[in-house]
Write a protein that binds this DNA or RNA. Structure first.
Length: 560
RNA sequence: UGGCCCAUGGUGUAAUUGGCAACACUCCGGUUUUUGGUACCGUCAUUCAAGGUUCGAGUCCUUGUGGGCCAACCA
């Protein structure tokens, strides 16, 4: 495999080491286990790439497992969205599983634990139990219910299951060690009463297993060999192993939990809870708002699956805290779109230009290359006429030598058209330039092969013939937060850093064939950036999203 | 005051059993260019600190320092 040449991350080293220690390769199995309580985001993309990448690398199955043990938060809508996103990213799971598929098995095992004296029913309030829990530096105290008889526990647990108790009154706890230095080992809760309908099991159950009791056992049931999760679960590993010990059969694969650091992206938040807050508070329109770091948001923004996969590959996986600069993500989408996006012309901040020596009423259709990076993309025709738009910032009455664009008395090349020279301009009463008058060199037509057409002029501008222009709504996006790490400031809420100007809606003028553009189409507006057609687009009204700008070295020069 | 994890350029990751600190991005400078895009070339680190082991330490040991996580009937 070509993968062999690439350096391994620490997770791959762990797998390699297990293989070297005679773990059978055919027993390798992985899983991606989202809770269906929200949409997947760029952080999940790393986990998805890790697990499915391992599956590809070792030709091992990868399950998509929904960790659906909390009916209060989970919905079918999210299950569907997650499946769509994983598929869109280009991965195929072996089998689709649900933790809820295992509710009966988990229940049977719980009974087994009760019978072994390893679990008991506690009917104290959560406050009482919290008080007995102790602190990281002080041991906890044992519950008065800790030594109930097996018979009594069995009866109580049965009553819990039958719905005879109200929520919050009874729980099943593992009997471990109230003095453990690991708070999670201080008799953790295995089951709670929840009189809520579940999106899959409906009202079959009114007791639901907790994460810790569910996750490792689910891995075990599925015979997952390596269970990877984020660092905040590191302390859970001891409990994961303890629960496994209770039911483990030596002849089976024993799953191994290992942890990696969550990927943090600059100028955004990567947490389902916080992203949900942005939606609920109306900061963004929806989970798939193009400003969101969700997979669906990035998709709508115009990102390609390839660019996201390349991103996760280049940022890698490790255990240290990180804040990945968004420029690494932007590079990947530019890099991919540069190769595949057709070039077109669009003017977003129009200034009218009139060629005084071009015949009135005349028009010609000029050849334009679709993609200089891809000869097979061919060419198209664009209409040229006496009056057209250029960008306002592409004209100045006077400017220094670094300004390669149109200025009075100087020439520029119009992309795929003629060389023009600015002769004069007119202004409104406020002094704003509203029109530029030019002359053109009729022999300088692009591709005509004449001596004049081969002349070198410093600047090349994009333009759109006014008579032929198609209007479109264009949505420009800026970073969602003004701070690079909005949720890491103690005493400050991440919402305080929301960028009030993250969305700007303008009108653009595009070359006419864009009228045929379909939802999801991605193009490069030459000299401006990459844009895609938003799902809001209709046959009457085109809507484009700006995915990302081109690298802009002029902006840096202009700043100085 | 307890336990667990982590520390390599501006950012993210690499570095066979200890053996010339590498790759990508960014920044800065340059070449090419009918996109100030692309492509190409170049500059930017004595690996948190102090000791120790060793012919040799980013890697092993000790002690610091800094950061993260742990007391939801969430996952």
């Amino acid at each position: 495999m070509s993968d062999d040449s690439k350096p391994l991350n620490f997770i791959e080293h762990i797998v390699e080491e297990d293989l070297a220690n005679n773990f059978p390769k055919e027993h390798l199995r992985f899983r991606f286990p989202p809770e269906p309580n929200g949409y997947l985001h760029i952080g999940h993309a790393s986990s998805i790439s890790l697990n499915f990448g391992l599956g590809l690398r070792y030709n091992a199955p990868v399950n998509l497992r929904f960790d659906d043990t909390n009916p209060a938060k989970e919905e079918q809508e999210f299950v569907d969205a997650i499946k769509k996103d994983v598929t869109w990213l280009g991965y195929e799971w072996d089998t689709e599983r649900y933790a809820s598929d295992y509710f009966q098995q988990l229940y049977d095992w719980a009974i087994y634990l009760v019978k072994k004296g390893r679990a008991y029913v506690d009917n104290q309030s959560s406050e009482e139990m919290a008080a007995q829990k102790g602190t990281p530096t002080e041991p906890g105290t044992e519950s008065p219910n800790r030594n109930r008889s097996v018979e009594e526990n069995l009866a109580l647990f049965n009553q819990m299951k039958k719905g005879e108790f109200k929520e919050g009154t009874h729980v099943l706890r593992a009997k471990i060690d109230m003095a453990s230095s690991n708070m999670l080992m201080r008799d953790p809760i295995m089951y709670r009463v929840l009189h809520k309908a579940h999106h899959r099991t409906n009202t079959d159950w009114c007791i639901y297993p907790m994460y810790d009791w569910t996750h490792g056992e689910s891995d075990y049931i599925e015979q997952v060999s390596h269970s990877f999760c984020t660092l905040e679960f590191a302390m859970h590993r001891e409990l994961y192993d303890w629960f496994l010990d209770q039911v483990y059969d030596e002849k089976k694969v024993r799953p191994k939990q290992r942890e990696f650091a969550r990927r943090n992206l600059s100028h955004t938040v990567v947490s389902k809870r916080k992203l949900a807050q942005l939606v609920e508070n109306g900061v963004v329109g929806s989970w798939d708002d193009p400003r969101m770091p969700t997979i669906s948001g990035l998709r709508r923004r115009g990102y390609t699956p390839e660019s996201i996969r390349n991103f996760t590959e280049t940022i890698g996986i490790a255990k240290r805290d990180n804040l990945i600069d968004v420029s690494l993500l932007e590079f990947q989408v530019r890099n991919h779109l540069n190769k595949v996006a057709p070039r077109v012309m669009g003017v977003l901040d129009p200034l009218k230009v009139v060629i005084t020596n071009y015949p009135e009423g005349e028009e010609e259709w000029l050849d334009a290359e679709n993609n200089p990076e891809d000869e097979s993309a061919g060419s198209r025709k664009v209409p040229f006429s006496r009056e057209f738009y250029i960008e306002k910032e592409d004209f100045r009455e006077e400017a220094n030598k670094k300004f390669f664009r149109l200025k009075l008395g100087k020439e520029v090349r119009l992309k795929n058209a003629y060389i023009i020279k600015a002769e004069s301009c007119t202004k409104d009463t406020d002094g704003n330039i509203i029109e530029v008058q030019c002359t053109y060199d009729p022999k300088s037509k692009s591709g005509s092969g004449t001596e004049e057409s081969l002349r070198k002029v410093k600047g090349t501008l994009h333009w759109v013939s006014i008579k032929h222009a198609v209007e479109a709504e264009v949505r420009l996006y800026d970073r969602l937060f003004t701070d690079e790490s909005p949720d890491t400031h103690k005493g400050k809420d991440f919402m305080d850093f929301v960028n009030p100007d993250s969305l700007q809606v303008i009108k653009g003028y595009l070359e006419p064939h864009l009228k045929e553009a379909k939802i999801g189409d991605r193009v490069q507006f030459q000299r401006l950036g990459y844009f895609c057609v938003d799902p809001d687009s209709t046959s009457e009204k085109l809507v484009f999203n700006k995915t990302v700008g081109l690298r802009d070295s002029w902006a840096k020069i202009a700043e100085k």
